[in-house]
């Protein structure tokens, strides 16, 4: 029984490591920030889910499991918010944004 738990932990941890490594490779291979955000989102969601749930499986059922699940919940809510703000920064400060992004026809996207 202990070994079954160990193998579940190892499988989840290796999946998390693979997704983190692919996120880092994506951040290096893409050429523009919006594409890099897409690559970094893999590590922020799937990698964190796999690694933290592996630790929850390894620790068994106690108070730490609840804290780790709350950690997943918190990171899944805050990671899209920070990505959204980063893309807003990119939109407002990049002087050559028309080379990289396409806007809707009919004006600026956030024109009020």
């Amino acid at each position: 029984m202990e070994w079954i738990r160990f193998f579940i932990t190892a499988a989840l941890l290796i999946m998390g490591m693979i997704s983190f490594i692919s996120a880092v490779i994506g951040v290096y291979r893409f050429g523009f920030v919006m594409n890099r955000m897409h690559a970094a989102g893999i590590g922020d969601t799937l990698g964190l889910l796999c690694v933290v749930s592996a630790m929850a499986v390894a620790s068994g059922l106690n108070m730490d499991t609840l804290k780790l699940l709350f950690l997943i919940f918190f990171m899944w809510f805050t990671s899209p918010v920070s990505t959204h703000f980063l893309s807003q920064v990119e939109y407002y400060t990049n002087r050559e944004r028309a080379r990289f992004m396409t806007f809707r026809k009919g004006g600026e996207p956030r024109e009020s």
Partner: peptide, 18 residues
């Protein structure tokens, strides 16, 4: 650019949490 740096800081934070 500045957004690249903030993005990599975000990734470093996630890896540190893990």
């Amino acid at each position: 650019r500045i957004t690249d740096r903030i993005l990599s800081i975000n990734m470093i934070g996630t890896m540190t949490i893990c």
